[in-house]
Design a protein around this nucleic acid. Structure first.
Lengths: 292, 292
DNA sequence: TCCATATGTAAGCTCAACTAACAGGTAAGA
DNA sequence: TCTTACCTGTTAGTTGAGCTTACATATGGA
């Protein structure tokens, strides 16, 4: 693209409006500047091109023939720019909310509840993308992310949602029904854990357990993990809601539980990019944390 | 034109170059800025539209599908702007010199000599526009103006060319062959003068004669004025060259002549808008004043 | 003649656009 | 594996393009 002969784009915009409206004052109003700005821009363009572009017509101004040529090209060009800009803005406005979450959050916290959100807000479409990776909201095009951690994500609005409520469970036969402690001597255990247990791994590590030193068998789904743990083949870590039945009927023992941890799920959004629909979704998330 | 959704035109230009070249550093070189400027512009556009426009591809960047849509529209739009800009610059470069002069200067000074200029410079086209009005070089699209006065035209380059050499003449029978003085008692005379004698009127006024208080008959052409003056019907003012024959053969008397006046013809040009061709023309004008 | 509108222009202000500087990533070649 | 050359990301600071303010002058309708 040869920009050598192109003057200031701001000046060209000012001129286009002046030529189209045949009035510097009207052009100023359209562009939210003063008539002085328009006059100066047009003057500078005339100097640049060495041509008269506007001429007096009583009180107002008319484009000269050269001015008309320039104005026509500019109107077409700027019209295209305005159109594509509007299209992209509309595309951003009309698309569903894109939510990135940790896998477990999606599976155990959000999906079980999302039906209620959809019932209450049928006009708000939500796309949920479970991902263990730390996504870049802006670059990856997300409106909101649910992340597990301590909440210090720079450049983002961060609001703690709630604790994850993880619980480490095993069959009584594995550690004895009188096991006392938390995370004590569990490194020698056989961990049966899914590959998507991203935030569980974070919690274990934060509590001193180095899974890389443990025998780990990666399971495909949590249900299989639990089945194997019930059979006494090892231990696992899951959200409390998943194991509460087995704990209460004595099939499994809760060896350690996430209580009063500074780790937890957080709502992440980009500053100044919170649409009304997103605000509705966030309010609903807040309401949900009060529900057992 | 709806500018509400249009972001910074500078940012759009930066993005267009980045998308087309798939490289922020190359875009920076094309636009003569640093890669940091390009990166900031693209970031701001992504914030504005709420969409990702560029994504990493190893070391370089690729436009996303939305980025490709925007980039295509921008390339077309900016291409049009670049093209019309180049056309107008070329038009200014390729057109003939446009010279505004006072009417008498054109008729008696310039036109008699212009043939010599054209013979010497066949490649330089010159358009001459006689005008009694004070033209605006910029607004009216002139490269040079010849104006009669004292030379103080603000905002313009001014160079004195030479005296106009006006002479007031009458038949001996009108004022007696022994008339002594200059502009003395001439207000009672019957002035036969063309409408285009702009600079003559300026000189008369500067020498104390108020034509509005005189009996003035406007003639269509100077030749007719001279004929009537020869017949003793009144007096007139013309360039010396026109009347020199009648003065020398005694048909007319020179009542007053413009000598050592601060009034004179001046060459006016706009600062920083003197093309090589215009310089050639000005040099030729200078040379001509040395020619009787 | 008065009033409401227009444009012209110079002086001064300000923030968008940019640079400088540093950091970190990618990829190719030794 | 290390080195080199290129790329982008980002922050802090600079600056002049773009604008406003204020005043002047012109036009046209009532």
């Amino acid at each position: 693209m040869d920009w050598r002969h192109v003057p200031s784009l701001s000046a060209l915009r000012a001129f286009e409006a002046a030529a189209r409206l045949t009035n510097y004052s009207a052009a100023a109003r359209e562009l939210n500047v003063t008539h002085a700005a328009i006059a100066q821009h047009v003057r500078r363009l005339e100097d640049h091109f060495g041509l008269s572009l506007m001429q007096r017509d009583g009180q107002t101004m008319q484009p000269t023939p050269e001015g008309q040529r320039l104005s026509r090209s500019l109107s077409t060009a700027f019209g295209q720019i305005a159109e594509i800009s509007e299209d992209l803005i509309a595309q951003d406005t009309d698309r569903p909310l894109r939510i990135a979450t940790t896998p477990s959050f999606a599976e155990y916290w959000l999906m079980p509840r999302i039906g209620a959100f959809w019932a209450a807000n049928p006009e708000i479409r939500v796309e949920i993308a479970p991902s263990g990776d730390l996504v870049d909201l802006r670059a990856d095009g997300f409106d909101l992310a649910i992340r597990y951690g301590r909440g210090a994500w720079p450049g983002l609005n961060t609001e703690r949602l709630e604790s994850a409520g993880h619980v480490v469970v095993a069959a009584p036969s594995v550690v004895g029904s009188n096991y006392v402690g938390c995370m004590t001597d569990l490194e020698d255990q056989h961990w049966l854990i899914t590959g998507t247990s991203t935030e569980e791994r974070v919690w274990l590590k934060a509590n001193g357990l180095d899974l890389s030193k443990c025998r780990v068998t990666q399971m495909d789904v949590t249900a299989l993990s639990l089945q194997a743990v019930r059979a006494g083949h090892g231990i696992t870590i899951v959200p409390r809601a998943v194991a509460i039945g087995d704990i209460e009927n004595g099939t499994l023992i809760a060896l350690c539980e996430e209580i009063d941890s500074d780790l937890g799920y957080h709502i992440l959004t980009r500053p100044d990019r919170v649409s009304p629909q997103l605000k509705t979704f966030i309010a609903w998330l807040r309401k949900q944390r009060e529900t057992p």
